[in-house]
Design a protein around this nucleic acid. Sequence first.
RNA 1: GGUGGGAUGGGUGAGUGGCUGAAACCAACAGUUUGCUAAACUGUCGUACGGGUAACUGUACCGCGAGUUCGAAUCUCGCUCCCACCGCCA
Length: 423
Amino acid sequence: MLEIQRLRSDKEGVLNGLFKRNIDATNTINEILDIDSLWRSSKTELESIFAELNQLSRKVGLLLKEGHQEEASQLKLETTSLKEKETNLKLKVEEMESKISALLYSLPNVPHEDVAQGKTPEDNEQIERSGDFPTFAFSASPHWDLVKKYELIDFELGVKVSGAGFPFYRGKGAKLQRALISFFLDEAEKAGYEEFIAPLLVNEASGIGTGQLPDKEGQMYYSQADDLYLIPTAEVPLTNIYRDVLLPNEDFSIKLTGYTPCFRREAGSYGKDVRGLNRLHQFDKVEIVRIENPKNSEKALNEMVAHVRELLVKLELPFRILRLCGGDMGFASAMTYDFEVYSAAQEKWLEVSSVSRFDTFQSNRLKLRYKDDQKKSHLCHTLNGSALALPRILAAILENNQTQEGITIPTILQSYTGFSSIQ
RNA sequence: GGUGGGAUGGGUGAGUGGCUGAAACCAACAGUUUGCUAAACUGUCGUACGGGUAACUGUACCGCGAGUUCGAAUCUCGCUCCCACCGCCA
């Protein structure tokens, strides 16, 4: 949620920023500011009524103590009209407050100044492209054929037991999955992130904290009997550790990581894009999360990008890094880098990581703050990124490393898998 | 699922209708003392919003939401969460 102070002080900047998302928020912001100024004057008036009532009550108390019954009941009468005014005004103030917050919740984050305007993925800026595309002397198979051939993943079995998008990993497929998770966690640990095993179901407050709720509840699985949501990413439980937290000083850098399954309903997609491992209802992911002083968040973002980049280099996968344009960024993000690996048989780029800074957008909802040297509190910055999402990595490894004899496991993973190829 | 008990500031914990935003202690921070450390002493020590250049000031907040009352941390009702014991279960 944007800070209302920001709208008050820099309306033009916010409007221009949102324009990069192709959103014209002029009406919304004007409405917010109109209500806000009315709210402030009403609030002041309401508080002065409270002050008056408080004084009267105090006087009544004193009078009664001294035994002046008559004068006390006189004063009591005076409060009735005040209380009536109070009730009406209070109602109005509350109405304004909920209107303002509903409008504020509807606004996405303002893109960082370096983010380009744009509408579609075509408008994303390529920052880097690395690694060579593999070439094959035979006709390369897509991963959904490979996993069948080598009995690594069983989609049909998943359909039987759960439904489409819930595959079984089996044998060396399961082992490879486990190897990737361990590798990613170990790398994160080396980079200074503390590992967590997080709850997979979260409450409503957590969903609101990281921006999934309200609005995007359709994307999450929901257990009605318990009023809990299945996490779409570890970002939700990990970041919400710091909901309602006031850090005692300005010297902090919090780095968290965790592996979790992720659950996404992802309604409305079909076709080749969702085939095989490309889009699942349940998938595995290692996430990295950071809570930073605003002055360090740019540095933190760069470190995270470098970290994810290094993972892809070690896995020997051809990849490219994109800085998303305004129109392609997520609701809460101020800047996002997407990582895509090239999957050689499908002959296309697959998104495997998204690294974002949210600035104060999440922390404002989370009420996550720190105290500066002057003991004033400020909102922290939050960041997160996938490091990495497993299925498409697996798809790319399988497709890119296939030979006519089998699939070669990337060297870095071999100590984790215990085998160097899949026949 | 059943039966009890509880929820007060960073922590422990006092407070059952009126200068109580809240005692006391601990922790923390600053200072004095000290060769250093420790101890001792002194002081500071919640958050949010509004007004004010500022000093400051008004209001709200004692799990959440209603209610009673001139006045609620304190009384009433509803809800949530936590703890203990029993049952069930990995």
